[in-house]
Simulated assay, not measured.
Amino acid sequence: MTQLRRVRLLGHDVRVAVRPGTAPGPPLVLCNGIGASLELLQPFVDETDPRIEVVRFDVPGVGGSPMPKLPYNFALLACFVGRLLDRLGYDRFDALGISWGGGLAQQLAFQFPRRCRRLVLVSTGTGMLMVPARVSVLNKMLTPRRYRDPAYAKAIAAELYGGRMRRQPGEVRHVAYEQERLGPGTGYFLQLLAGVGWSSLPALPIIRQPTLILAGNDDPLIPLVNARIMRALLPNASLHVFDDGHLGLLTAADELGPLVSRFLTLPAGEGASSSS
């Protein structure tokens, strides 16, 4: 059963959820997308092998975590997450990042090469140096309105998220609209600011962890070519392309949850097969 708690760390209160695993092993740390609270990833957690311990947290200024005292970048936030995992008693961990959280997950793998065992990157890219979405799509990312206004979220769902949302835009309310769990709007913009000038592209060749890249074949926000670039540059990466869009980790959780679980429970030295 998932345990919700608040952890006081470096003068900040952080809301954390831990689903205990039934077997020993490093936990899977989930790094969420921009503006999203930890509840958003519940469909994926439900489909993850119960043997795997799962840790989720709200970034400062988002969901149930109060605003940070100062702005942050990915490097500082990775240090913060490392301290959080120390406080929770984890020496090693696996990291999964979706969208904006994929940048944080890559930073964790880079900063903690001995602690971060395996890496999963979902619907994400390499930051400022990547193949961008269309300008009309990017403009819709500059505001947290998609989380605050359900009518607006439905109206833009097809163009912003692609995949299943093209056929069922009304479903976006159930996977991305979470008015009751929003933090202040400033937190959203601090997350945007954290990525300004950041790119993982130069560091990818030295990220040695086994890496599973998951990318939708209809993702307007993160074009599929970015996943192929990451697979080419990461020394130990495989790519799985799924038939959905940017929110596939949620809308195709029944497919991707078991896939990620198999990757994380493979014997040491084995990687996931590539499907592109």
Rank of each mutant, 00 (worst) to 15 (best):
I229M: 06
R115C: 03
G245E: 06
G187E: 02
G89F: 12
G170Y: 09
S123L: 05
G103Q: 11
T251M: 12
L85A: 08
P26Y: 01
R51C: 04
I207A: 09
A75G: 09
S123D: 11
L28F: 06
T211D: 02
L88T: 04
V59M: 09
G162P: 08
V175Q: 08
D219T: 15
L121C: 12
L221R: 14
G103A: 12
L266M: 13
R231N: 09
L182Q: 15
G185Y: 03
V54P: 05
L190H: 05
L192K: 06
R166C: 15
G102W: 09
F112I: 04
G21V: 14
C116W: 12
N139M: 14
V225Y: 05
Q179G: 03
E47K: 15
P210I: 08
R148K: 15
Y147V: 08
L88W: 07
R19W: 00
G21R: 09
P26W: 01
A17Q: 08
G195W: 12
L9D: 00
A268T: 13
L28N: 04
D49Q: 13
Y161D: 10
R83V: 02
Y152E: 02
V16Y: 00
P20R: 13
A157D: 06
V241H: 07
S200E: 07
L96T: 04
T186R: 14
P223M: 03
R87Q: 13
V137H: 13
A158E: 08
P235G: 03
E47N: 12
T2F: 00
V225D: 07
L129Q: 08
R19I: 11
I207H: 05
G163R: 04
L160F: 14
R208S: 07
F242W: 12
G197P: 11
G11K: 13
Q111F: 04
K154F: 04
L10H: 07
P220R: 00
G35F: 08
V14P: 00
I156Y: 02
V135M: 14
D49F: 06
A23W: 05
S99R: 05
A157N: 12
G64C: 03
A151E: 15
G187V: 00
G64P: 05
V62A: 02
L190K: 04
L104A: 04
A272K: 12
C79L: 14
V54A: 02
G269T: 07
Q106H: 01
R92M: 01
G33C: 03
W100N: 02
T186S: 15
P71T: 02
E178V: 13
G183Y: 03
P132S: 00
R164C: 12
V172K: 11
A215H: 13
P68V: 01
K69P: 02
L201I: 10
T265C: 06
N236T: 07
V122Q: 09
F44L: 15
E171V: 10
V120G: 09
D49H: 09
I98D: 13
R19H: 00
Y188M: 07
G269V: 01
A36F: 07
V18D: 07
P220D: 14
